[in-house]
Every structure is written in C-alpha cells, then in structure tokens.
C-alpha cells in the first residue's frame, strides 16, 4: 500500500536517512523504533512531503508520490500526526477539526465526520469551543489525531503519540489508536521511542539506527531478538514479558 524504496533524505547538511526501504500493507500497523535522532521522524516527514528525498521513490498504492507537495500527498490519502501535536493553538477545537478537512471537496459530509470524531474522542465534544492551546497533553494528542482523520486518510503516520504523557493517558491513547485500526481498517506507520508500547500494538516493525533500517520483522520476532531486548526494551522488560 505504502512503499518507500531506497530513500535518502538530507536535513540541512545532515544525511539523516540513508537508503531506507519500508512498506505498510493495508490494515497493518507498522512500528518504527529506534533511539533519539535515529531518523524516524525524518522518514515520516519525507513521506508526507515536508522534506524532499534526495533520491529513492515513495509509492502509495499505484501512485508515485515522491515529488508531490504535502497538500497533494494528503489528498492521495496519507495523514500525518506530527511530533509534538502541532495544533493550531490559538483556534478552537472545532476550527482545528474543520481545518483538518481543508483538502476535502465533499464539504457537506464534514459535519458528519466531526460527529464521528466526537464519538471516537468524546472529550473533544465537551471541549468543542475551547481554544486548542488550553487542552491537556492527552486531549491535544486526541485532537491532533482527530484533525488528521478529518482528511479521511488511508494511512496515518503517527509520530510519538505518547510523548510527554502520563502512562495512564498513554494507555488510553493507544487504545484509541487500536480502535481506529480495527474499526476503520486504517493502516498506520507508528514512530515511537517507547519500543515496548509500539511492539505491543503493531503487527510489524523496523528498527532504525543512524538513518538506516538495521532490523525488521513481525513484532513477535522483534520482541524475541536479544539485541532489541538489550537496546530498547531494557532488562526489566524480560521480567514483565515472561
């Protein structure tokens, strides 16, 4: 469905992504795990067109989207929930949702979709007229996801949805991500520093280190790998898992 082939991306003078090839199948959640600065976010930003790859191709379905701008890429069906939520903080919750649907032509159905998002994230209904910047971290994450969903994407790129959130809120967010995947059949590419969370949720995963994919497999395989346990899951993980 979404396929990156040998993508190289520069971030200023830094060669941040060095020949990455990954794919996401329909209905699948794929996790990108790896340390700080490994290039995970850069991969997502390259897919959604904020950054241009220096070489390589990106295909979505049968379309080559490598050279498209972010607005066109969104219209082909790739939604991106950026790192740090990046809400329009001075606008209301409702305005954020309306702007999420900015690229759509079927305007008459936007209100229905706002209702659908408010069913999925009931807190957003309560906060409707509130300025987005005044929401709590968890609420902001929900709004960011709902905003991206308003464009009716086929694939959702999720960048660090757990960042800065308390464990109990994170669990709630992850349950909602799972519901989106099951309910809407939405494919996802999930970037997460918390490898344990990501590997529990996803079907498959890639491990990114210094701009390269160093390992890939089903999440079961990855969880069993010694290196992953040592590097990303920590000692304590083994005890919890077994």
């Amino acid at each position: 469905m979404l396929r990156l082939s040998n993508i190289h991306t520069y971030y200023g003078n830094i060669h941040a992504v060095k020949g990455v090839s990954i794919h996401v199948n329909p209905g699948e959640i794929v996790a990108l795990i790896g340390g700080n600065g490994a290039g995970k976010s850069t991969i997502l930003r390259t897919i959604s067109g904020i950054l241009k790859p220096a070489s390589g191709t990106i295909h979505f379905g049968s379309d080559d989207i490598t050279s498209l701008g972010p607005e066109s890429i969104l219209r082909t069906g790739i939604g991106h929930v950026p790192e740090g939520r990046r809400l329009f903080k001075g606008l209301t919750v409702r305005d954020n949702l309306i702007l999420g649907a900015y690229s759509r032509r079927d305007r008459d159905r936007i209100d229905d979709d706002i209702d659908a998002m408010e069913r999925l994230f009931p807190i957003l209904k309560k906060r409707k007229g509130q300025i987005a910047g005044t929401l709590s971290g968890g609420e902001q994450q929900m709004l960011a996801m709902a905003r991206a969903m308003m464009a009716r994407p086929g694939v959702l790129l999720l960048d660090e949805p757990s960042m800065g959130l308390a464990p109990i809120i994170t669990a709630q967010i992850y349950a909602q991500i799972k519901a989106l995947n099951l309910g809407e059949g939405l494919s996802m590419l999930l970037v997460e520093q918390n490898a344990r969370l990501a590997l529990n949720l996803a079907h498959r995963g890639y491990v990114v280190e210094t701009g390269r994919i160093v390992m890939e497999g089903t999440t079961g395989e990855l969880r069993e790998s010694n290196e992953i346990q040592r590097a990303y899951l920590g000692k304590g993980y083994r005890e919890v898992w077994e």
């Binding site: 067109g49 950026p82 690229s103």
Partner: peptide
C-alpha cells in the same frame, strides 16, 4: 500563521 508545517500537513497550500 500559527504553524506553517502543521498547516501543510492539513492540506493547506
């Protein structure tokens, strides 16, 4: 004006 990258990700030209 608030966040141009986020605006682009929302499909705003």
């Amino acid at each position: 004006a608030m966040d141009s990258d986020a605006a682009r990700l929302s499909g705003i030209n």
